[in-house]
Design a protein around this nucleic acid. Structure first.
Lengths: 160, 160
DNA sequence: GCCTCATAGGTGTAGATACATCCATCTCGT
DNA sequence: ACGAGATGGATGTATCTACACCTATGAGGC
């Protein structure tokens, strides 16, 4: 059905909604993290590396649900700042492993309070149920790469 | 309280969640809209202009919850493509009014079906309650500029 | 050992985003 | 009429984002 939706339906656009929300939320975090010289994305990467230990470019990209090429550049920026180190993988010469540095941990620890303030006020402003809903949404399988994203990869083989 | 949250709390980061979601959703729309030469943001602008008529740069920025300077450049791109026209306001020489062109309406109409497909499959994938929640979130007052955003504007005057 | 293919990253290019700052213009009080 | 402050946009700069494409390397089959 619905060969062509009505223009008025676009008022419910999920892309507009998600981008509105992420812009507003990102601005809030960026403002506070700025005092520590971090962007929200960079804070996320440091926190991830601190919690999970060394990660490859691909693992980081998958975790934050971004393109690998995006992660290449995101990592390069925090590497230049000395917040992380990038080494060759021991067994696989293709793989590059990213680890947080001591300076990265220091910066992260210092920024953690600011993060908590924004997280707290945002949670209060939007309500805990909305916050939980957003997290569930972001952790759903459909958001993962490979879910429906491989349609355009050209895998029209018969069975594999 | 919570002078410094624990690192493990960052796993619940709303910024990561919102950016994850918007990246995944935007990629889905961008892939389909590409056939029509549009990005998701550009589609949103065309749909907005088609529904609401002529809008100023500032009005558009406020509507999609973005910075005015971002909107200046977003509009410039679709203007170069001939999708919109920008004219001086009749009464106020500072204001620039953006209107959709005939070509813009054509492009929008052609892209509407693609938009509907993505909107439909995403809604199904995430569930209607999650979709509604995301829209409510994006339409909340806290996301609006001026809500808490003016704190850093430097308005530490006594009463105004 | 070699060839084919898959995998991990990097580069070129383009758009989206926002802050600081600048310019032009409007508003309003005097 | 004039000046101060507010308002609407534009520009410089930096980051985030992704697709197309490229290179290097690993994995398997023969």
């Amino acid at each position: 059905m619905s060969t062509s939706p009505d223009l008025i339906d676009t008022a419910q656009c999920l892309c507009l909604a998600s981008r509105r929300a992420s812009r507003a939320i990102t601005r809030a975090f960026d403002r506070e993290l700025r005092a520590h010289g971090l962007r929200a994305t960079q804070f996320t990467l440091l926190a991830t590396l601190s919690l999970k230990g060394g990660q490859t470019i691909g693992e980081l990209a998958e975790f934050i649900v971004a393109d690998r090429t995006t992660m290449t550049r995101n990592v390069a920026l925090i590497e230049e700042k000395g917040l992380v180190e990038v080494r060759q993988h021991e067994d696989d010469a293709r793989v590059r492993v990213v680890t947080i540095t001591a300076w990265g941990r220091e910066t992260l620890a210092a920024a953690l309070a600011s993060w908590g303030e924004v997280q707290g006020s945002l949670t209060e402003a939007m309500g805990t149920s909305a916050a939980d809903g957003l997290r569930r949404l972001a952790n759903s399988d459909w958001a993962r790469p490979g879910a429906r994203n491989d349609i355009k990869q050209g895998r029209r083989e018969t069975a594999a």
